[in-house]
Simulated assay, not measured.
Amino acid sequence: MKSITIQGTKRESVGKKSTKALRDAELVPCVVYGGKETLNFSAEERSFKGLVYTPEAHTVSIEVDGNTIPAVLQDIQFHPITDKILHADFYQLSDDKAVVMEVPVRLTGRAKGVVAGGALRQSFRKLKLKAIPANLPDEIVVDVTPLKIGNKLYVGDIKADGFTFMHPDNAVVVAVKMSRTAMKGGAAAMDEEDELEAEEVKDQSPDVPTTEEKSTEA
């Protein structure tokens, strides 16, 4: 998995006053836990650009006071109005310790149901999984080609190689629904078929004289 580096400065004070001063200086209060000791540090908000504002998944190398700590982002808080980053939590990685993180889902192929006029619906853009750092995948690749209209692909259908999904097996990742266009097309086809059947019945019906014709004959 790709990794990005975040340069940090150790925080000596973690009070509200100190936190506000950091945010005013466009610095993000952060914490990394999971190791022998919890580390509180701050980092420039712009250093999060390649970690947060991207569809890709990354591990993080946190560099503080000459030490490098491998970690993954566990939680991040944004201001409800300005979207500025308020706080970030990291979890320190260990080679033999499994970690939970979200990984993007990439769809490949063109579903048969889409070719037939259906619409593809993706329920999960990312999937949460658990694995040791060496087995963390960059992405989960899902081939949707076999899916027909009405078909669904579940978490349990995806091969998990070296990791475990943190979702139930029956969670729907992607489905092919009947689109409005296809429904209208199907309805129109049915109407046309009904008309043809009516014409056939009419053509096959015996010629029965009407009441007026019977009176004339008499």
Rank of each mutant, 00 (worst) to 15 (best):
I85R: 11
V172H: 15
I132E: 06
D157Y: 08
H79R: 08
D157G: 10
V115Q: 12
K20V: 08
P168W: 01
P168K: 12
A134H: 09
A134Y: 04
I4W: 07
E199Y: 11
Q77V: 07
I69S: 04
T108H: 11
P133T: 01
L22Q: 10
I158R: 08
G8A: 01
V105Y: 01
K20E: 12
A175N: 12
Q7T: 09
K128D: 00
P137H: 03
S42M: 04
A43Y: 08
A21T: 00
T68G: 00
R110T: 14
V176K: 13
Q77S: 14
R23G: 10
N151G: 11
V142M: 06
E139N: 07
Y53A: 03
V103I: 05
G35L: 02
F163V: 00
A57N: 14
A160R: 04
N40G: 07
A57E: 04
V201W: 13
P146I: 02
V114I: 05
V72M: 02
E63C: 10
K17I: 07
K130S: 01
N67G: 06
D24L: 11
R110G: 10
E102R: 11
D138E: 10
V72A: 00
D169A: 06
L93T: 01
M101G: 00
T181E: 14
G162S: 05
L27M: 08
V144P: 15
K202F: 12
F124K: 15
V208G: 11
S47M: 07
K184L: 14
R110P: 02
P168T: 04
Y154R: 13
A21E: 07
A25V: 02
L22F: 07
M178Q: 15
V201D: 13
N135W: 02
R23D: 06
E139V: 09
R121H: 15
A88R: 05
I6E: 10
C30L: 00
Q122R: 11
E45S: 14
E200I: 04
V201P: 06
P55A: 07
G186P: 09
V142W: 09
S47P: 08
V28W: 06
M101H: 01
F124W: 09
A187Q: 12
D191A: 09
T38G: 14
S179H: 13
K2S: 13
A160S: 05
A43L: 02
Y33V: 00
A171S: 13
T108D: 04
E213P: 13
P29C: 04
E212D: 13
D143P: 12
D143C: 03
N135K: 09
A182H: 06
E192Y: 10
R46I: 03
S13T: 11
G66C: 03
F163R: 01
E212I: 00
I76H: 08
A175M: 10
D89R: 01
R106K: 14
F163N: 00
P70I: 02
K152H: 14
T210S: 13
D203R: 14
G156F: 04
